[in-house]
Design a protein around this nucleic acid. Structure first.
Length: 860
RNA sequence: GCGGUCAUGGCGGAAUGGUAGACGCGCUAGCUUGAGGUGCUAGUGGGGGAAACCCCGUGGAAGUUCGAAUCUUCUUGACCGCACCA
């Protein structure tokens, strides 16, 4: 619509006053509140975005994540669902302790101050969140319930205490996660990391390994690649587990068990290798200082250095030997750095002819390489001397296996092993139990007490929550809980003798493994109110970053099953639908001296040259990459909302590209979104007045406008259903263009089209929708309460359509035909088109194709 | 190495096997407005043509089909995940 004089461009939409006003209105009307236990006839819908870590400020990734979730929540609400959309904080973790060490702020104060900041920032986005359900995982009310859950799991036999190898930082006196080990050194202390055997708590996730794998097939609203990543992580493999008898027992060890997926190649064996942590290696070390030195070297390597060393396979010949279960021949036992204690049995038989690692190892140490599988198409020159052969083929040099293919060779070898009582066919899993002990302060205390007489004793239920002490000292390295003067000293609940509290706290992944369930009844004095979780779970749509594709989601799936085993819910899968969003990226900039510059420090001049704002210093524009503080290519959401408003930020972030892909945040893109918001505001001016209709309003144009508006309903609905928010945005742009192009249509039609547009756009730009709606309907309610618009079928019906006419598959013309036109009518029209006649060039038509509503193709 | 995803104008992208490039950004020209981020109109894949139109075009090569961005095979490249998993 061309601007009328009354709606000139000085009419600006004042988002600064409107946005807070509508946020208050939604809040006061309680638009987003739902009961813990919904009415029986309610169509529930649970929308959840991965809750944030309270780092202090929200970033663009949060804006994208929460905007996506909010569109879903608002849309589903309009579709008549009872929508739960809660928010909370993943509030335990190391950064709070770092702040305490570096700046002397208590982790609790640091965390809650950050939460207050970020809550205010999120509220400015106008998200349809139910803040009444908010909690932080560091609230004792939350972690106390987590402690109860842990004790329930302990009772249910899902918790174990066992020794495990950890990355140990000898300077900080703490265990490091793999990602905290950089080049073999502690990320904070810089000290070489050691492998250390510690007694730790484990959750028995492996008990559910088959179920966790099989259930992936049913998660049909999860991205395929996430399911694949989980399947790989769980890592099921079929093979055989069997024993080699040692030629001579050492240190009381008489045999050595191995796991293999290739029992068919057993006759190609040339050595046996064990991990440096294997008992046989220890036995060798006890007799031979050189073996001990080799093992110590492997251990000092740490987990991360192993990556650097991965090319080099190293081994140590123990001098022990084992007997082949089929032939009785003896083979040497090596300690090898490439054998993992954690996988299988920590021991393998080496078959250099048909395994790359074994091949490399055998060549390095001059061990024999025997071919036992020959490719089906092998020529006379077949050899495994240079490279191993991994594929399928015919088994050779293998006595009773000769002539079989690989698959039947495996079966035959396993049958023989079982017959000999040497071993058995097994399924092996890559997944390991989940070690949850962390030697840290800012985490949920593990509620057990160690008593010299009674062993491990659970903290009694009436003493939960077991709170963290407030008075802790961060000036010393190590775990403040451990060196707290009094906290860990307690009487044993069972025998009343002096005992010690567990001073480890939980891995923070534990906190986030059940928060989605807690949201259903966040104030309950049990972990979850059964009626609430039965009604609300599963989460219908979960939205978050792909970086959590494995651990967080797998742990949550495990927790759901563990909670079921403990009787807290009846569910198998926590997240029925999962959407993984892409990252937010930005150009990076460097000044003349190579320093990184923030986007706001850079000015792009009209001549296309970038300079440091206010100077002549040239700026190098770098790659578009994920926003990171180190590269300073970040944009502060708060600043964007200050300048453009929340609706603009939301609209741009949705419009740029499909949400699963990485997006580029660009200044021009935001400016464009802002212009569109202002344009809609201008277009709405005057529509509220009961103006005298323009002379002779164009009823036909009005009808066409109405048809377009009602078709938009179907188009936008389809786009939103498919998470194609960028397409939904495009459809709304089209409708706006159509309205603007119909200035002669009757006011009522233009107003109806505008109202439809607003309601379709409302999930994405909720404030502007309310603002315009309130002008058009001064006494009307909130758009947030309106149902989704419904298209009038009469307006969707069309009486004629445009058909493409092809000649031999090439477009030559378009024709207008009645929708119910017969083939004969369509062909007659098509063949009369001058351009079609010319393209046929006098050739008779050999074939006529008419696909109703789509195309006509004539082949001459 | 194994597994997976993707490839369309200057850019982001759209397209149930049926008019490729919707919509936006950017750009060009004109008109307006007026000095701090405007508004309007027209155009904008490449080539040819005054025009009507024609030819080419969805990383590359082949195939299936009346018809392929879409399906199949091969190939190239980018990205992601796992990675000594026996």
């Amino acid at each position: 619509m061309p601007d009328t004089p009354a709606a000139s461009q000085d009419v600006r939409y004042d988002f600064r006053s409107a946005e807070p006003r509508w946020q208050r209105a939604w809040d006061e009307a309680g638009c987003f509140r739902v009961p813990d236990v919904p009415p029986a006839d309610a169509r529930k819908y649970y929308v959840l975005e991965m809750f944030p870590y309270p780092s202090g400020k929200i970033h663009m990734g949060h804006v994208r994540n929460y905007t996506l979730g909010d569109v879903v929540a608002r849309y589903k609400r309009a579709r008549g669902h009872l929508v739960m959309h809660p928010m909370g904080w993943d509030a335990f973790g190391l950064p709070a302790e770092n702040a305490a060490r570096e700046r002397g702020i208590h982790p609790g104060k640091w965390t809650y101050d950050n939460i207050a900041n970020m809550r205010a920032e999120l509220k400015r986005m106008g998200l349809s969140l139910e803040w009444e359900r908010e909690f932080a995982t560091c609230d004792p009310e939350y972690y106390g319930q987590q402690q109860k859950l842990f004790l329930d799991f302990l009772n249910a036999g899902l918790v174990e205490r066992k020794e495990s190898w950890v990355n140990w930082d000898p300077v900080d006196g703490t265990v490091l996660a793999n990602e905290q080990v950089i080049d073999g050194r502690g990320w904070r202390s810089g000290a070489p990391v050691e492998k250390k055997l510690l007694s730790q708590w484990f959750l028995s996730i492996t008990k559910f390994a088959p179920e966790l794998l099989d259930a992936l097939d049913g998660l049909d609203r999860w991205p395929e690649r996430v399911r694949l990543m989980q399947a790989n992580w769980i890592g099921r493999s079929e093979g055989a587990r069997f024993r080699f008898r040692l030629a001579e027992a050492v240190g009381g060890i008489a045999d050595c068990e191995v796991f293999t997926t290739r029992p068919d190649t057993l006759f190609g064996m040339s050595f046996l290798a064990v991990a440096p942590e294997h008992p046989l290696a220890a036995a060798a070390a006890a007799r031979n200082p050189d073996a001990a030195a080799f093992i110590a070297e492997c251990r000092a390597m740490g987990t991360s250095e192993a990556v650097i060393e991965q090319a080099e396979k190293r081994g140590f010949d123990t001098g022990f030997s084992v007997a082949h279960p089929f032939t009785g021949e003896t083979y040497p036992v090596w300690i090898a750095n490439f054998v993992l204690m954690e996988y299988g049995t920590g021991a393998i038989f080496g078959c250099p002819g048909h395994d790359e690692r074994d091949h490399e190892f055998a060549r390095k140490y001059g061990l024999s390489i025997i071919p036992v599988v020959r490719p089906h198409d092998a020529g006379a020159d077949f050899s495994v001397a240079e490279a191993p052969f991994i594929g399928d083929g015919v088994i050779i040099n293998s006595r009773f296996l000769d002539g079989l293919d690989v698959a039947s060779g495996k079966r035959a070898a396993i049958a023989k092993l079982e017959e000999l009582g040497a071993g058995t066919g097994v399924v092996n899993w890559r997944l390991r139990d989940w070690g949850v002990s962390r030697q840290r302060y800012w985490g949920c205390p593990i509620p057990v007490i160690h008593c010299d007489d009674c062993g491990v004793v659970p903290v009694p239920q009436d003493q939960l929550p077991l709170r963290l002490p407030e008075d802790v000292d961060f000036s010393r390295p190590g775990n403040p809980l451990d060196h707290h003067p009094s906290w860990k000293h307690v009487a044993c609940p069972r025998c009343a003798k002096p005992a010690r509290r567990e001073t480890d706290t939980f891995d923070t992944f534990v906190d986030s493994s059940w928060y989605f369930a807690r949201f259903c009844s966040p104030r309950a004095d049990v972990p979850v109110n059964r009626a609430a979780v039965d009604a609300w779970l599963p989460v219908d749509q979960y939205i978050g970053g792909i970086e959590h594709a494995i651990l967080h989601l797998l742990y949550s799936r495990f927790f759901t099953r563990a909670m079921r085993a403990a009787g807290h819910l009846a569910l198998e899968e926590p997240f029925a639908g999962l959407f993984t969003q892409g990252m937010v990226q930005h150009e990076s900039y460097k000044g003349a001296d190579g320093r990184w510059l923030y986007p706001e420090e850079v000015e792009k001049r009209a001549d296309g040259i970038a300079v440091v704002r206010g100077t002549e210093e040239p700026v190098t524009v770098g790659r578009v990459e994920s926003m990171s503080k180190s590269k300073r290519n970040t944009v502060d959401p708060g600043a964007i909302i200050d300048r453009y408003g929340a609706d603009t930020a939301r609209w741009f972030i949705l419009s740029d590209n499909p949400p699963e892909r990485d997006m580029e945040w660009s200044e021009s893109g935001v400016a464009g979104a802002s212009r569109f918001i202002q344009r809609l505001w201008r277009m709405a001016q005057g529509l509220e007045q009961a103006l005298v209709e323009a002379e002779r309003p164009d009823e036909a144009a009005g009808h066409r406008l109405r048809q377009a508006a009602h078709r938009s309903i179907a188009a936008v609905t389809e786009a939103l259903e498919g998470f194609a928010f960028n397409v939904a945005v495009a459809r709304i742009h089209e409708l706006a263009n159509t309205i603007a192009d119909a200035p002669t249509a009757p006011l009522a039609a233009r107003r109806e089209a505008m109202e439809i547009l607003l309601r379709l756009a409302a999930p994405m730009m909720p404030h502007l929708a309310e603002e315009i709606w309130s002008v058009l309907h001064p006494a009307g309610g909130l758009v947030a309460r309106l149902p989704w618009p419904e298209a009038d079928p009469a307006l969707l019906a069309v009486d004629s359509i445009t058909l493409a006419v092809q000649v031999a598959g090439k477009l030559r013309a378009t024709i207008e035909v009645p929708v119910d036109a017969t083939d004969e009518q369509v062909f007659a029209l098509a063949e009369a088109e001058p351009n079609v006649i010319r393209a046929l060039d006098g050739r008779p038509i050999r074939k006529r194709i008419h696909v109703k509503g789509r195309v006509v193709n004539l082949v001459g």
